[in-house]
Nucleic acid binder design. Structure first.
Length: 646
RNA sequence: GCCAAUGUAGCUCAGUUGGCCAGAGCAGCUGAUUUGUAAUCAGCCGGUCGGGGGUUCGAAUCCCUCCAUUGGCUCCA
């Protein structure tokens, strides 16, 4: 007999060799039906695996992320089985579970697979699911494993097996499909009740651009059909928040092929919104001791040779601009830092002046790959809310923390609650990609790691995500479809000060090298506004929204009164317009609602008689009648409330 | 840059197996209407069907190519 300990510390005795599934059954049939996998002594395992010794056990169901992972990983196998049925000879790469579902990378040879083929594959998957195929785990020797996939002629699996050690290789067999796999898997495929293949995409084998591109099929499965339907509805809803769609509807920005790919054109309403964000940050920065600077959009190529940008990105950038002078070349600036370094160098500095904080909304140009361009989130010309802090080494931490405070302030002000703080460090296996000495990198990485530890934020470390001159702390926020985008960023840099030979005179009357902190709380105005649009679905807070109200006169007769109201509101620092069209009120309301204008002020005979406005709130309907003063008061209160968050 | 899908008026979309001068709604313009909490009515304007090439008696529809968009991959100073 063995002792099984449950998460609630309860202990029960079982025969050795009992499976997690058996144990679940001994508790209740219902639990047994819902168990997808189990954690046995800290490791997630097949629920059907025999347990030979005393163990701590935890069951995973659909309500656990581990349970979902098991479900989706098994679904990848199920899909592979169906794919193999229709495309015998297809070769399989990897097929993991992901945050929402799973994918499998497949080499179909000469055959083309598109979304048109999904229906039959889905149908076959459900068929196999209904057969309640069990996942049979087999430990195999490396030799056996290699033999199997050599016969199957699957070079991808062979490559994977070659990277594994003998004795740690397992196969899983479900139906006719055998896969190299660590597991764990579902007790059987019958748990999968609803299947949806979502899209196909090319994906390089092992993420390596120089290797063959496989066909990746993404899918998701559910234990209930209803959950799939709900998921699909959610996806549709998310698409409605897409900033590209709302940006068009609300006339915030546009693109023109005549101007160029990835070069956004800000329309008046978008420009107003952006300007308010910029003014807000300018105010915060002034309070935090930043000094404004302004630099040109181009710079001599020499500048970027000094900074290292030329070597690193020169050939993939917009190409240099030549001048009538032989050999003279300018670059569109891809970064503001070299310019700011030159400003720093324009005069000698004393340690007493430090830290110096130069801030600029600097527009930069980068030749992003055409396939990467995406609305406002990935563009070729964008404006960074950039600043560079030049400080002494012992000031780095305090300065870094102060910048973090600004980022957090902004995120709080705009209700960005769901963000990831990512520590982006060097790829330890590929130091060639970076400039600067190991010593400098150590110092910079240590500083960031220490600051992160001292903050109360949950951070994740990503290796290989650093900038080429230094490590970063990146603030990642998701868009409507769950894609992560880097917004705020703070970077510690010991390298550029060296390259630009920046100096200050210390208390010891000797020359010292300052440390640079690059930082951009919004990241770029373009990307930030894009994410803001998706988070708010275009319903911006009052302090930001282009029009706070619109006055809707019932008819032409009340145009004069409407103008008086407008003047009064404008004088009270509120902004809005009059809809003077010869339309019915219902129509004006509908249009204002669709434009997400927060307040509609309906004025007619009654309102004119009592000097009031009839207030309608976007999305909420009629709010009753208020005097001008009362309305202004309520608006000021609402804005005041928003200000407190700022 | 790579893989796949898509590309018809400013926007959203119809256009059967290739067959009469390419359609609708919204937007825009003109006129009528003077309107009370999510679409007033009528008329007009607007497209060389993404560009180019080809097949055909005939192409928005079939083929090739280029461009762009979308979803991924790679990249992201």
């Amino acid at each position: 007999m063995i002792k099984i300990t449950f998460p609630d510390k309860n202990v029960r005795q079982y025969e050795a060799g009992v499976s997690a599934l058996d144990i679940a059954k001994s508790i209740s049939e219902g639990l047994a039906r819902n168990v997808l996998s189990a954690e046995v002594n800290g490791e997630v395992k097949d629920a059907s695996l025999p347990i030979g010794e005393d163990a701590k056990i935890r069951f995973f169901t659909w309500n656990d992320t581990e349970g979902k992972a098991t479900m989706w990983h098994s679904s990848a196998h199920l899909m592979a089985e169906a794919v193999e049925f229709f495309y015998p000879g297809a070769k399989f790469g990897i097929g993991p579970d992901i945050e929402n579902g799973f994918y499998y990378d497949i080499d179909f040879g000469d055959r083309m697979v598109s979304e048109n083929d999904f229906a039959k594959i889905e149908k076959k998957m459900l068929e196999f699911a209904r057969e309640k195929q069990s996942f049979v785990r087999k430990e195999v020797s490396k030799e056996e494993a290699l033999k199997y996939f050599t016969e199957k002629d699957d070079e991808y699996k062979l490559e994977l097996i070659n990277d594994l050690n003998d004795g740690e290789i397992t196969f899983y067999e479900s139906g006719s499909f055998v896969d190299l796999c660590r597991g764990p898997h579902l007790p059987n495929t019958g748990i999968i009740k609803a299947v949806k293949l979502l899209n196909v995409a090319g994906a390089y084998w092992r993420g390596d651009e120089t290797r063959k591109q496989l066909t990746r099929i993404y899918g998701i499965t559910f234990p209930k059909k209803k959950e799939l339907d709900e998921y699909l509805v959610k996806l549709e809803e998310a698409k409605k928040r897409d900033h590209r769609k709302i940006g068009k509807e609300l006339e915030l920005f546009t693109f023109s092929q005549n101007v160029g790919l990835g070069l956004p054109l800000w329309l008046p309403k978008g420009a107003q919104l952006r300007e308010r964000l910029e003014n807000y940050l300018k105010k915060v920065q002034t309070e935090a001791g930043y000094l404004p600077v302004i630099t040109p959009h181009i710079g001599n190529v020499k500048l970027y040779k000094t900074s290292g940008h030329y070597d690193k990105y020169g050939s993939d950038s917009f190409q240099p601009i030549s001048t009538p002078v032989e050999g003279e070349e300018f670059f569109l600036k891809p970064m503001n830092c070299p310019h700011h370094c030159e400003i720093y160098k324009s005069k000698p500095h004393s340690y007493r002046e430090l830290p110096i904080r130069y801030a600029e909304f600097g527009t930069v140009y980068r030749y992003e790959q055409s396939g990467e361009l995406h609305g406002l989130t990935r563009v070729r010309g964008f404006t960074q809310d950039d600043a560079h802090i030049f400080c002494m080494p012992d000031q780095v931490k305090d300065e870094f923390k102060a910048v973090m405070a600004i980022v957090m302030k902004i995120f709080t002000a705009l209700d960005f609650e769901d963000f990831i703080v990512q520590i982006s460090l060097r790829d330890p296996d590929d130091k060639e990609k970076y400039i600067g000495s190991d010593e400098n990198w150590e110092k910079a990485e240590t500083a960031i790691k220490e600051v992160a530890e001292e903050s109360n934020l949950n951070t994740v470390i990503e290796y290989g995500e650093a900038a080429f001159y230094g490590p970063k702390m990146d603030f990642m926020v998701r868009d409507a479809l769950g894609r992560k985008w880097q917004l705020g960023t703070i970077q510690v840099d010991y390298n550029l000060p060296e390259r630009f030979e920046l100096e200050y005179v210390g208390a010891d009357n000797e020359k010292h090298r300052p440390v640079m902190i690059h930082r951009a709380p919004f990241g770029s105005m373009e990307r930030f506004v894009a994410v803001l649009i998706e988070h708010t679905a275009g319903k911006f807070p009052l302090w930001l929204t282009p029009d706070q109200f619109i006055i809707l006169p019932i008819s032409e007769k009340y145009q004069n009164y409407a103008e008086k109201v407008l003047k009064f509101l404008n004088n009270s620092d509120l902004r809005g317009q009059i809809d003077s069209r010869s339309e019915k009120t219902g129509r004006k309301i509908r249009d204002a609602e669709l434009k997400r204008i927060p307040y509609m002020l309906i004025v007619g005979e009654k309102e004119e008689a009592d000097n009031t406005v009839s207030v309608r709130k976007q999305g909420e309907g009629d709010q009753g009648t208020l005097t001008w003063d009362a309305y202004v008061g309520s608006m000021q209160d609402a804005i005041e409330k928003e200000m407190q968050k700022r």
